[in-house]
Simulated scan of single mutants.
Amino acid sequence: MVEIAVLGGDLRTISLMNTLSSYANRIYTVGFNQKEVGVEVCERTLENLPYERLNAIILPVQGVGTDGTVPTLDGDPLKLDPSHIERTGEQCLFITGVLTPFLKANVPRKVISWMSREDVAIANSIPTAEGCLRLAIENTAHTIHSATVFILGYGRCGKTIADLFSGSGANVIVYTNEDGEIARAKQRGFVARSFLNITDDADEADVCINTVPSRVLTPELFQKMKSTCFILDISSAPGAFDPGVAKAFPQKILNVPGIPGKVAPKSAGEILGRATIKIFEKEFGHGT
């Protein structure tokens, strides 16, 4: 008998629960109702969950706030308290996207992060890349075909983004300080350069997409770029640029983390659901 509770979340969470319904015997939900989810769930509050029976508690992709705040689809957050967590049995897993300080400090159980899994990261790179392409099309006055597109970072997302833009006819230039990533980018046929050169090259870019979770988008870089360059930062908080500083420049500069949940929530939720079933199979060894 596998019983899980899903606390808060967004549109991805609905798709996640639909996928998990083929595995779990019972799904309790806090922050959603039966009509929203579409499969059989047991609606509860944080106070009346059967914590001692739960095999797993599933939290939102963005994790839990420093004060225990859990985001919900309707914008009315839940407040997870350490006293709730203490009521869980030792067998209870906690699954989330981001392992935030609150979870590190207050959960004496096994916590598993989706985003630390290679299968999730690679699968998520596809809707991420498609979302980047859509935003680039919507925020430029020219075609992507023949445009010069800078890709900052060549990890799992950077690779897929570079491939998709190249397939659309863009002239892709990859920037990274990792020798291995430079070699891989060149092997794929891309121009690959060190970050040390990016300010000198900045006026070449029509589109610049950053995947690096550090402040690599500097005022000096903005100063050198064309006024028409579209700059998209998909890195997680605190982002790759200072929003206050960016306002002083003429370019359209956006920070859009969590793209899969915004552009393809159904597919993103299915990715999380399949990964969660793999986690359950490994931890519990059985299903319905």
Rank of each mutant, 00 (worst) to 15 (best):
E204Y: 07
F249D: 02
A192E: 09
E270V: 13
N210K: 05
E204K: 15
A237S: 13
G261L: 01
F230T: 04
F249I: 00
G244P: 05
S267D: 14
S227C: 10
Q187M: 14
R215N: 07
D233K: 00
P250T: 12
D206V: 05
S214D: 13
V212A: 06
I231Q: 00
D200I: 06
D201T: 10
A183P: 07
V212R: 00
E270I: 14
F241G: 00
F222D: 01
D203T: 12
L221H: 00
A183G: 00
M225D: 07
S194K: 15
V212M: 08
Q187I: 05
N255C: 12
P238A: 05
D206I: 11
Q187D: 13
I271Y: 01
E181H: 06
A264M: 08
F230A: 05
K224Q: 15
S227Y: 06
R184M: 12
I182E: 10
D200M: 14
G180D: 14
S236W: 01
A248C: 09
A246Q: 04
C208M: 15
I231L: 11
P238G: 05
E204F: 02
K262F: 04
P219E: 07
K226M: 11
R184I: 11
E270A: 08
R215A: 13
I182P: 00
P257L: 07
E181I: 00
F249M: 08
D203M: 10
R193H: 13
P243A: 10
F241L: 01
A185L: 05
F222Y: 12
N210F: 01
A192C: 10
C229V: 08
Q251K: 12
N197W: 02
R193G: 07
D206T: 11
V212G: 04
M225F: 07
A248S: 14
F222K: 02
N210V: 09
A205Y: 03
S227K: 15
K262Y: 03
D242R: 03
L221P: 04
D201G: 09
T228E: 15
K226P: 01
A248Y: 10
I209G: 05
Q223K: 15
V212Y: 09
Q223R: 14
P219H: 07
F190C: 02
P243Q: 11
R184H: 13
P243I: 08
V256L: 09
